[in-house]
Nucleic acid binder design. Structure first.
Lengths: 138, 138
DNA sequence: AGAATTTTGGTACTTTAGTATGAGTGAAAT
DNA sequence: ATTTCACTCATACTAAAGTACCAAAATTCT
């Protein structure tokens, strides 16, 4: 915020200076007004480039994209997807069961069908595959 | 490349048009030269912003950053790091052993010490933690 | 309402993961 | 030269993960 104010202040000052230069040149009878305009155009062009670069640098890092279509395509149900997310967070079956208020048996059932649907042999592989397919929001 | 040429062509045309306008205004005795200069400055300022945005949009997606300092800080050895990477790829201990030409016992030893150093209870948690700490190149 | 699907849960079993402990080897540092 | 450390491997064990098979509720769809 402070930087923005500073930059715009400098911009106004630059504009005033250029005004004065152009006025003095105009009064002194120098007719090369095109050159002055060209310089002004160039200077403000680069000012534009600079400011834009500054503002873009501190922008949104990632617009998290979850591939919902792929999830449907693989016939992964809502509950299974929830379990998949918890697996990716590094939780054990027991912990997932506690978090989702169901038995560990249920989680095992879900995990097994997830592995089949993702064509994975292990939960770690399921994590890798689901990240590759952008199924996870992180 | 074609776009760049096009944009610069348009820039030159714009510049010429502005020259003509300013000249005509000058010749017609209108003394509001400052306004014209201001308009030119503004126009080129936004042209600069626009071009910069264009060029930045198709930039490097990610400059993969591995936090080597953190790896050293956690006392993770070279071999352990190799194993960690394979874990993150979803391989089993047996598969890692085959890939690195050592016994499964050795891998188990490495995995155990990795878990201790990363303060993880499971390999899936180790994956999550090491991603959070940017220890992995993917 | 009836059918289909999802979600839930159980038992019994196999496989993989992880711990604990001990130990041999080679390379590098002191 | 001896100590330190990374790497290796083994055995024995416990814990967790995963499979197979079945089946009852709960939801959703028609």
């Amino acid at each position: 915020m402070k930087k923005t104010v500073l930059v715009f202040g400098l911009l106004i000052i630059a504009l005033l200076i250029l005004f004065n230069i152009s006025k003095r040149t105009y009064l002194s009878g120098d007719t090369s007004i095109e050159i002055i305009i060209g310089i002004i155009a160039l200077v403000f062009f680069f000012i534009g480039v600079y400011i834009n670069k500054r503002s873009l640098h501190k922008e949104i890092p990632k617009p998290i994209t979850v591939n919902h279509d792929k999830i449907k395509e693989l016939n992964i149900s809502n509950r299974e997807y929830e379990v998949l997310c918890e697996i990716a967070k590094g939780l054990s079956n027991q912990e997932i069961a506690a978090k989702l208020f169901v038995s560990e048996s249920t989680i095992k059932t879900h995990v097994s069908s997830i592995l089949v649907k993702l064509n994975a042999k292990r939960r770690t592989q399921a994590i890798q595959i689901s990240k590759e397919l952008h199924l996870l929001p992180f």
